[in-house]
């Protein structure tokens, strides 16, 4: 659980750390809108290189951000596959007739077993996956002995390839941008920025201060609750509740043995927190002051100008 990078603040210094959170939030929203206005792959590749340059300017470790991409890697692969399989516009690039046969089913099972076996060695995991996909492709197209059935054709269109690359790069940029925001902004700053930005919503009856308070308290308690859950799990494990094995009936009981103390501790903690806040004279709904007021400075101005330029450029490109 400690390796999740998305949504986690990493202490450091650099250009993006000094920015006002409001600037960061607004800029990222505008940059994303601009991104969706882009239409062809060249423009998108330029946008991609610009975001890499931004990472370098901000002196953020690119390796760290790539590591953060890991959890959404599967999502990327799926979008890629869906686009390539179901988009049927443009000229036909590949038209491969395929069919199933007993020999091909058997060999698919065989290479799947081989793939899972080799995956135990952990290294080259991704290469193995690619090899497995290529293997299935080859088997389905050429490897037939005996009767074949369920014939179908595997078609790839020009537009499909283009769109799949397009969508994947766009997703990559979006995730990189939002990771930059969360990596360089403290949760408290982030909520303060949101609070200030959402202030106009008061007109329709939404109190942005309460909203910001809710967010900051939940963020604050995620690590605490995780820690508690871990301790409860250890305590129940020493009473023989092994969460990895056992029948379903035992498992339900074991999960209950984890959940009940979790809820009790969470309620107790929230009560304590409410008491602590009240004893320091916190009154819900009353305006509060901050120790550190947000300031709009030169680098914020530069960032805003940059964002405005990008946004204008993408609109111009769209119109032309």
């Amino acid at each position: 659980m400690k390796n999740i990078v998305i949504g986690q603040f990493v202490p450091g210094s650099g250009f993006f750390y000094k920015l006002d959170p409001r600037t960061k939030i607004v800029s990222i929203v505008f940059l994303m809108v601009a991104l969706f206005l882009l239409e062809n792959i060249t423009q998108l590749l330029i946008a991609f290189s610009v975001s890499v340059v931004l990472l370098i300017i901000g002196r953020l470790s690119i390796i760290r951000i790539i590591k953060g991409l890991k959890p959404i890697f599967i999502l990327l692969i799926f979008t890629f596959l869906f686009q390539i399989l179901f988009n049927q516009e443009g000229t036909l690039l590949v038209n491969q007739s395929m069919s199933l046969s007993y020999s091909s089913i058997a060999s698919i099972v065989a290479i799947t077993v081989l793939w899972r076996y080799l995956a135990h060695f952990k290294r080259f995991n991704f290469l193995l996956l690619l090899a497995w996909i290529a293997g299935i492709y080859l088997i389905l197209s050429y490897f037939h002995y005996g009767p074949t059935f369920a014939p179908f054709s595997f078609k790839v269109y020009e537009k499909g390839v283009e769109m799949s690359i397009f969508v994947v790069i766009r997703l990559l940029i979006i995730i990189t941008l939002s990771t930059v925001l969360t990596i360089t902004t403290k949760p408290t700053d982030l909520t303060q920025g949101l609070e200030k930005l959402l202030r106009p919503m008061k007109v329709i009856g939404m109190n942005s201060e309460d909203f910001a308070l809710i967010i900051s308290i939940s963020l604050r308690y995620i690590p605490t609750i995780l820690d508690e859950a871990n301790k409860i799990m250890l305590a129940q494990a020493s009473r023989g509740a092994d969460f990895s094995e056992g029948k379903l009936k035992d498992k339900v009981k074991q999960v209950i043995s984890l959940l009940v103390p979790m809820f009790i501790i969470a309620f107790k903690r929230s009560e304590d927190l409410a008491d602590a806040m009240e004893s320091r004279n916190f009154i819900p709904g009353k305006p509060r002051t901050r120790i550190y007021e947000l300031k709009f400075n030169f680098s914020d101005l530069m960032t805003s100008l940059f964002t405005a330029a990008c946004f204008a450029l993408s609109i111009v490109l769209k119109v032309i």
């Binding site: 305590a235 129940q236 020493s238 023989g240 094995e245 103390p261 501790i265």
Partner: peptide, 18 residues
């Protein structure tokens, strides 16, 4: 490993955990 925990019983600091 579960059987080892029968051999050595560990009581945690806070009873609320169990």
């Amino acid at each position: 490993y579960n059987l080892l925990r029968k051999h050595v019983g560990l009581v945690f600091q806070f009873p609320e955990y169990q």
